[in-house]
Structures are given as C-alpha cells and as structure tokens.
Design a protein around this nucleic acid. Structure first.
Length: 701
DNA sequence: CAGTGAGCGAGCTTCCGCTTGACTT
C-alpha cells in the first residue's frame, strides 16, 4: 500500500448531519461537526471596545476548545477544507471564524465555503462542485447583531442589578417577550365579563331530534342580557309552532397546511399534545438524531430548527409515490409547492419525515409514547400537505318559531382529500344529524334551553401563542423560541399556571421599568428595524459599526440617565407574612432568592434566620414536620414537596399542597389536573376520597 | 417510568444565537 490519499475535510454544524453527509459523499471526504459557534464573546465581561469602533474581543467558547482542537487536527491532515455550516447569517460567521483559525496555522491550505439548503445527495454534490468564498458582508451583519445584543443585554442587566435585584437580566428579545406577557395580563385584569344568555330549541321532525340556536329575534341579533330577558323571550315563544323557513347548502374548499416550521410544530404540539416548547424540541431532537429501528439507526425527521416550509424535490416525489399507492384519488396532478415565507432565512427544509414510508404505525414499536405522538403529527402534516384539498359541505337550516329564528348547521366532508392522512391532527367537529326537509315543513317544538354565559376576555399567553407572536413579529429564531420561555421562568419573571404564562410581581416591575426607561428598545419594532439595518450591512450599503453606533449612542445616554435618576426599588419585593421568626420573634418576610422563594427574618442582618415556606402540615401520623417545596440537586428538574423532618420522615408528593384542609379527614388538599376533571383539589390521604372541583379554574382548550 | 431531599440575603450575576453532551472547578 502506498501513502494514503489526502482527504477533503467538510465541516457542518450538527453531528447528525455530518453522519448523513459522510454517507452520501463516500471516499475522499471526512465530515466533521462544529456543534455551533466555537468562537464568541466571553461571558464574564462586555468585551467590546466602544472607543475602537465597537471591535469585539472574541475567545474560544468555554468547553469548545476540544472540538476546535480536533477540527484543527483534521484540517492539518486534509488537502482542502470545505466550510459547510448553515446557509444563514450565523452559519456564515461560524465559517469565517473557522477559516481564521485554520489560516493562522497553514496559509496555503485551500479553504472554501459551500452551502446547501437541504440534505440530499444531489444538493450536497452540487454544493461541493461549486465552492465559493466566505461572504464578509454577511459575517459583518452577524457581528453587528452579536455586538448589538451584547450591548443591550450587558447595559440593561446591570442597571436592574443596581435598581432592583442582583442576577436579573434584560435583552432585546426576552424583554419584549416579557412586555407582551405583562401587557396581556393587564388586559386580562381590566376586562369586565358581561353576562348574556343564549336560547336553544329542541326540535323534532318525524323521529329525529336535534337542537337549534336562536340567531335572530324580531329580525335582529338577540340581546338577552340577563335571566329576565331570557325568560321574557321564552314566554313569548311558548306554544308557538316551528316551520322551516330557509335551507341552504354551502361548499367550501379546504387546503392542507404547509409542512411544519419550528414555530408551527411547537404551536401544534402545545395545543394538541400539551407539550411545552422545550419538551417538543427535546423530543424532536431525539427523532432527528435517530432511533434504533431494529438493527439500524435512522434519523426519522429532518432538522427541527427551521423557519422554512420548503421541501426537497426528492421528498416531494417520495410523498407523491406514497400517496399514489395509499390514496390514489387524493393525489394532486402536480406537487403542492410551499415557499420559504417572508423573512425566512431558509437554511433548512421544513420539518418532515425523512422517509414517508416510515408511517407512524410502522415505527410505533420503536418509539416511546411522546416520540410517537410528535412523529405522528409531523408525518401527518407533511403527507397531508401533498394531497388534494377537502371539500366541506355545510347545510344550514333557518327555523322560525314565533318572533325568533333558530339556526342549525351540519358540516360533512364531501371530498375527504388530505383529511384521509390525518388522525391526531384531525379537527374534531361535532355536528348533529339533521333530517332531510324542505322549506315550509313544520316541526315539533319539544322545548327550550336557556343558558347563561359571560363574554370572555383576552386569554393569557401560552407557549404556543407567545411563540406564534414572536415569530410573527420576527423576534427570536427557531433555536431560541423555547429558551426564551425558559429564561423568563428561570428569572421568576413569569410562572406557568396550568398552561398559561402569568407574570410575577417581579416580572411586572421589570417590564414597567424597561418600558418606561427604554421604550424604543423594549419594543416589537426594534428587532424589525434592526433586521432592516442588518440587511443593509449584508448588501454592503451600510458599514456594520456605523449601524451599531447609531443604536448605541442613544442607548448609552438613556442608560446614564436612568442610572442617575431612577430610584432604587430594592426590597419592595419582600412580602410581609404572618410567620414569626422562632429565633428572635420578629415577623418574617417572603423573599426571592437564587433558588426561589424563602422566608427570611425581617431583622436581617442582626438575625439571619431563614427557612423554606411551609405549605402544609406533614400528614404522617406522629410527624410534626411541615411540607415544603424541594428541587432535585442542581436546581433543575421538577419541583416536588417533602417533609422538613427528612430524612427522619420521607413523605413526598408531586402535587402542590394548598392551605386548605380536608373537611373529611383533616389532611391537606393538593392541586391536581387531569383530562376528566380539569383543575381540581384532592385530599392527599390515599384512604380519603374527598374531591373538590368547585372554584377550580377552567381548563381552556 | 423512576426517584427526587443544600441554602438562598452583603455577591460578581447579564445578552442572542448556533449546537450537543456532561467533567472538574
């Protein structure tokens, strides 16, 4: 054997992607992964030289030195390096930084940039055959973005430390998300529900019974404001006959939806599967990295952080062939095309199954429950997106009873179309069966059901709706939607109540300060304007440090002004309580610490007594301990509730104790949520069957 | 699906955006 031929080194960001590409390229290529950014600003200080044109000081990211060293080693052995980081702004920066590192060691090594927007053999080949240079304008745009975010975050955060509390944070993205949540909360609070009543008629034709809603009264929309109005209406209707006045059929074509982007996947997974954004991404990552299907490991889905609905040609053909075999009459003449959408960076395809032939049923035995659910909605949405539209036929009946018109409608899908592919994603439409009739027919009136309602105000943000809003406003990226929610929770700016995001007192104070003092930065338009400027930098119309300067000067002035004028509100978060310090007898206050709330003696610093907040008495017979919130080591993980006498008493529960005592047995009640009862309270005593549903919050759908 | 268990305030925090494992400080 002679000397081994030198290889081409190709570098991508994701290791799973590297494995696939290595398979596609075969001999002559080594494919490695950078795992994201390797070079960045240090965390511990600003590291931006304002005087010298905002020049950032870059270092190797903590923990990434090993990867960088390994890449360098491989580059030394290679005859050529192809930088194939993602085809977007951040990817270009990664390519640039790697090139700089490699060049320092060896200035004769050919280093090229290649890019592709999908992982298919053709796309990879095409890219490898047409290498280009790193686009320095794009790199500068990323630099501007990075520097700007650092300047905003590292100027606003310390201001909060000084004025409110140590460890707090603010930034271009998280603070806008917080603002949205806080403003929504104000709307929720100021909304005054109004009472109204509806009237339903139970009717019969021959032996068929059905009900219809009153939609008109004396030719106008009924305004039944209270029980008296409903009763008056009922009285007039008494004894009146019912005739069919109008009957009509309307048809509506329903298009399938495009395949998933990250944001849409998180929304559907939240609304249909009750997954948090974080959970969705964790499971999607597992599906992407690959599941052992029998003996081989297969990545079940394409990359899960994408802003595009684009689908590769090969995948379209596979889908069409699958649909043609499975539902031949639902295959459209031509493939349904979906574009990347406005503002999308389009570095990856939509999220779709890698092989449509891996139907949810066929991979069921290899996946756990959550993986299967998530995979199913991804598969269904993709397959449906390549099928023909459905046709919904709605039959509407207007029935006259006295001065009222009652309406009933029923929808049925004349053409099922793409809906044939849907199971988990199918919308549940409950429509009644309506007997066939003709105009003028008379019906039997069996009775009326008046019902009290209240107008419902705006609903709080959930994972699904905050991600939707952020995406629509162009704030944040697919890789950051889930972390944005996590950071708001970690900082105690927001808590999750059932699935709703509710701001805390701290969150509201922070938001108020930021909105007051930095209205143009903590603003949904700020990112829009920034993106426009970044585009100008990318097109070489604007120099990056000019752009940064334009943003930073007013920011710096505002920061200085607030620093000098804003009164510190430290301590206002301490909440007085009825708990008495057992060491000095002074009252204790509830205070937020690094790991959550705790009780502290108001005599601090003379008395340094602290303790966790007792939520209930320990239910163990003979135990005098209190139940307190605990967390797994490291702070992360689900909260649970245990006895202060641990380890002598090892009582624990996952359900949050309430201050209420069970009227039956005297043990404490806990909050529970399940599908059947929604949110309710239950006795912690396993031998007690007490259930408390009254006053529980309603479960919104 | 199992098992989970500090001390916290007077210290050194923080940004956004890429990407996955996880060891000594």
């Amino acid at each position: 054997m002679g000397k081994q031929k030198k290889q081409t080194l190709l570098i991508v960001e994701s290791p799973a992607k590297a494995r696939t590409i290595e398979r596609y390229l075969g001999d002559g290529y080594t494919v490695a992964a950078s795992m994201g950014h390797l070079i960045d600003l240090p965390k511990s200080r600003l590291a931006i030289d304002i005087e010298k044109g905002y020049e950032p000081e870059y270092i190797t990211v903590r923990g990434k030195a090993k990867i960088l060293k390994e890449l360098q080693k491989q580059a030394n052995k290679a005859e050529e390096v192809l930088l194939a980081s993602d085809n977007d702004r951040e990817g270009e920066a990664i390519a640039f930084q790697l090139k700089k590192v490699f060049e320092k060691k060896n200035d004769t090594l050919p280093i090229k940039r290649i890019s592709f927007n999908e992982i298919t053999p053709q796309a990879i080949r095409e890219a490898v055959d047409h290498p280009t240079e790193v686009d320095i304008n794009k790199v500068n745009a990323q630099k501007a973005r990075r520097v700007l975010d650092r300047l905003v975050g590292y100027n606003l955060s310390p201001l909060l430390w000084k004025k409110v509390k140590n460890g707090l944070s603010a930034g271009r993205v998280q603070s806008v998300a917080l603002r949205l949540i806080c403003e929504r909360e104000k709307e929720v609070e100021s909304f005054i529900p109004e009472e109204y009543w509806t009237l339903e008629a139970l009717l019969a034709k021959d032996r068929h019974e059905f009900s219809a809603q009153m939609v008109l009264w004396e030719g106008e929309k009924p305004a039944l404001k209270n029980e008296e109005a409903a009763a008056a209406c009922l009285k007039e209707l008494e004894g009146k006959t019912c005739t069919l006045e109008d009957l009509r059929m309307t048809r509506r074509q329903v298009n399938p939806k495009p395949p998933y982007t990250t944001s849409k996947l998180q929304q559907d997974a939240a609304n249909r599967l009750a997954f948090t954004s974080r959970k969705t991404m964790q499971i999607a990552q597992q599906l992407y990295e690959g599941i052992a299907l029998g003996s081989s490991r297969v990545g079940l889905i394409t990359y899960m952080r994408t802003d595009s609905t684009r689908v590769s040609k090969g995948a379209l053909e596979d889908a069409r062939s699958f649909i043609g075999k499975t539902w031949p009459d639902s295959l459209p003449e031509k493939a349904n095309l979906y574009s990347a959408g406005k503002g999308a960076q389009d570095a990856h395809e939509a999220i779709r199954p890698t092989y449509v032939t891996n139907t949810p049923d066929s991979v069921k035995e290899y996946l756990n429950r959550d993986q299967l659910k998530l995979y199913s909605i991804i598969w269904e949405r993709f397959v449906a997106s390549q099928m023909v539209q459905a046709v919904a036929a709605t039959e509407t009946l207007d029935l006259k009873i006295g001065k009222g018109i009652f309406r009933v409608s029923a929808t049925r899908y004349e053409v099922k179309g793409f809906r044939k592919a849907l199971k988990l994603l199918k919308s549940k439409e409950q429509t009644q069966k309506i007997p066939s009739m003709k105009t003028g027919d008379s019906l039997k009136v069996l009775g009326f059901t008046p019902e009290q309602h209240f107008t419902s105000g705006p609903s709080r943000y959930t994972d699904a709706s905050i991600v939707k809003t952020l995406e629509e406003k162009g704030i944040g990226r697919p890789s950051t939607y889930a972390p944005i929610i996590s950071v708001l929770l970690d900082r105690y700016y927001v808590v999750r109540k059932t699935r709703q995001l509710v701001p805390t007192t701290l969150g509201r104070i922070i938001s108020d300060i930021l909105v007051q003092s930095f209205p143009d930065i903590v603003n949904v338009d700020f990112t829009v304007k920034m993106e426009q400027k970044l585009d100008a930098v990318e097109d070489n119309r604007v120099e990056w440090h000019h752009m940064v300067d334009e943003f930073y000067r007013p920011l710096k002035d505002q920061v200085d002004h607030v620093e000098a004028t804003l009164e510190s509100v430290k301590g206002i978060l301490d909440e007085p309580t009825d708990f008495v310090c057992e060491e000095c007898g002074r009252p204790m206050v509830k205070r937020l610490g690094r790991y959550g709330f705790f009780l502290a003696c108001s005599g601090f610093p003379e008395c340094r007594n602290t303790k966790p907040i007792p939520l209930a008495d320990c239910p163990r017979p003979g135990c005098d301990g209190k139940i307190v919130a605990r967390k797994k080591q490291g702070g992360r993980g689900k909260e649970f509730y245990g006895c202060t006498n641990y380890p002598a008493c090892d009582f624990i529960t996952h359900y949050k104790p309430t201050s209420m005592k069970c009227p039956k047995c005297g043990y404490f009640l806990v909050e529970k949520t399940d599908k059947k009862r929604g949110n309710h309270k239950e006795c912690i005593n396993p031998d007690c069957d007490f259930l408390h549903t009254a006053g529980a919050e309603e479960d919104e759908d």
